[in-house]
Each structure stands twice: as C-alpha cells, then as structure tokens.
Write a protein that binds this DNA or RNA. Structure first.
Length: 318
DNA sequence: ACCTGTCAAGTCTGG
DNA sequence: CCAGACTTGACAGGT
C-alpha cells in the first residue's frame, strides 16, 4: 500500500511566509474611510494568498501533495464589519491562479473550520454563524476552482448535557444544509466526546466520508482500531479519493491531548501494521507543532525502517 | 530586536 | 451566574 503525507497551513522551513496574517477588529475600526478599510483587508489577503502560493511551490519541491489551507486567508471574512466587501469578486484574479496551480499539480487541498463552527449547537445564532463560516470556506474553494474533492473537516460538536440528543440534532442540522456544503463536509472523531465508533455511525447515516484521527482515538476510545478501520476507509468509496487520516502524537503524559512537536515513529508504524491488513492506499495529514519539519523528520525515520520503500520525499510504500 | 498581553467567534467545569 | 481553561498564531504596544 502507498501512503502520502501532508501538513497543516504553515511551514517551519520557509521563513516569513505566514498565510494567516490578520488585523484585529479594534485596529480595523480605527480606520475611518470605508475604502481605506477595504484596501487594508485586501492587502492582507493578497499577502496571505501570495504566501500560500510560496508554500505550494515549497510543497511541490518536496513532493508534498497533501495540504490544508489556513482558515484565516481572508481576515474577518465572516464578521459584520466586512459585509460590504465582496472579496470573492475583488480577489478572483488572485485566488484563481492559486487553484490552477493546485489542479496542475494534483494537490489534495482541504480546510478545517475553527472550533466555533458547530452544527449541533442548540443555539440558533451559533448554527447560523457556522453556516456563514462554511460558506466562507466553500467560497474560497470555489474561487480557486476546486471541485467537491476539496473537503471541509468538521467535528460533531458539543455534548450539551445529552450526547444522544446532540447526535440527533447534528443529523437534523446536517440534513438541512444546502447540497453544495453537504458534499464538502467530512467528519472527524474528537478527543473528548464523539469517539471513532460514534462518528463512523453518523458518517454512515448521513453518507459522508470519515477522517480518522488516531491521536484522538487514543485519547477518547482507547480500544483497538482494527475492526473499525475497514468500515472507516469504506466511507470513502464513492469519493474518488483515497481515505485520509490525521496523525499526531501526545505532547506528554500530563498534556496527552496536546500535540507534540514531532510524530512518534513507532506509534505510526504500529498503525501501519494494522492498516496492512486492509492493504489500501491512504493519505496522512500530519498535525504536529513542527508542521512540515515533522513530516521531514518522520520520513527520515521511515527511511531506516525495515519493509518500507521510499517513493519520494513525502510518499512511502509498505 | 525582543517580550507580553490580547484577540470575533464556543463549550465545559467549577465555584 | 460568572471566571477561567482549553489552544494557538499573530498583532500591537511597550521596552
């Protein structure tokens, strides 16, 4: 089986290349002229797009085909203060080439809306804000010309006293979403409330792919993943994409939910041995503090490991 | 050049 | 009912 690796949003190797530059609300409000405000927002967004492009060149040079966009490309995009600014139209000529480059190089692009995006909140205003945020992410993908294979990773949400009721509410809210959002969304198990089994059941019911986070699984469920792995991978069958997992390691015993700087290679090889039973290609999103550097470090270790063949700087066969 | 408190947004816990 | 934790990169003001 072949396994490709990617990383999240920013590089530890390429310097001065943040794709998440922003402005605080307070400072934006200090600018009085509406045109001046917009030009500030526009300038920041252009910098973020440009830095994202630089990261994509870096990815290309290192054979990295899997990448998660930052959610902060357009500052304050879903805040009321920017409601008169049509950034999609304004920045079409900037987003388009970024997307063209992704398509030309067959990059697998995703995004992960922040933890404020909660479809199962009992508060209507939270749900409405979540839709707004999903539309924002969808608009970025659309501006780049990326089809529904560019996915949005979400968690199920809060517990709100009753898990059962909240799962039910999740499914109702999810069903009420417009089609163009439904087909972008994939669901991930979390480290506290909705474990691997819960999310797999929901994914099957609402017919969306599941991203398995093996660190969260270790935090929440503890049980062996082996029997769930095949049904999880099967949720991807209709997508024309290999299944994807998230990979990180616990920081330490006390903060076992936090992400460590790098990936514990033995931990991943243990998983590989289980995945070998299913023998299906898949992609790995590395979520480590050291970002792309953690990817390179992992590859260095894997190179020394028996039975692993190195295909390129970010892909192996096992 | 470096340091520190603060930042749009939610939820959960504990007092 | 409210404060603080969670978690995280970058801003912005100060030294």
């Amino acid at each position: 089986m072949k396994i490709k690796f990617g990383y999240v949003a920013m590089s530890m190797v390429v310097k001065d290349c943040s794709p998440s530059k922003t402005i605080t609300l307070k400072n934006l409000l200090k600018i009085e002229e509406p045109e001046a405000r917009i030009s500030r927002l526009r300038r920041i967004t252009k910098t973020n797009i440009n830095n994202t492009q630089r990261l994509l060149y870096h990815n290309k040079a290192h054979d990295i085909n899997i990448y998660r966009l930052t959610s902060k490309l357009v500052p304050l995009a879903t805040h009321d203060v920017t409601k008169d600014w049509d950034w999609v139209k304004d920045l079409r000529d900037d987003f388009k080439p970024l997307g063209d480059y992704c398509k030309k190089n067959n990059f697998r692009i995703s995004a992960h809306p922040d933890h404020f995006t909660l479809l199962n909140s009992p508060r209507e205003e939270v749900f409405e804000a979540s839709i707004k945020d999903l539309e924002y992410h969808h608009n970025i993908f659309e501006s780049m010309g990326l089809d529904k294979r560019a996915k949005l990773v979400l968690h199920i949400g809060g517990r709100y006293k009753s898990k059962e009721v909240s799962v039910q509410r999740f499914m109702e809210k999810f069903s009420s979403l417009p089609e163009h959002l439904k087909e972008r969304i994939i669901l991930e198990n979390d480290d506290k409330t909705y474990n691997t089994m819960d999310v797999l059941e929901i994914c099957k019911k609402v017919n969306v792919p599941m991203v398995l986070d093996i660190h969260h699984h270790w935090c929440n469920n503890k049980g062996d993943i082996i029997t769930l792995l095949e049904p999880i991978f099967n949720t991807w069958n209709k997508e024309g994409l290999p299944p994807k997992i998230h990979l990180s390691s616990p920081k330490n015993e006390k903060n076992y939910r936090s992400h460590a700087d790098n990936i514990k290679t033995e931990f991943f090889i243990e998983f590989l041995n289980k995945a070998k039973e299913i023998n299906r290609d898949f992609d790995v999103m590395i979520e480590a503090k050291n970002k792309d550097l953690a990817l390179f470090n992992l590859m260095k270790d894997l190179k020394k490991t028996k039975d692993i063949r190195i295909i390129n700087q970010a892909e192996i066969e096992y």
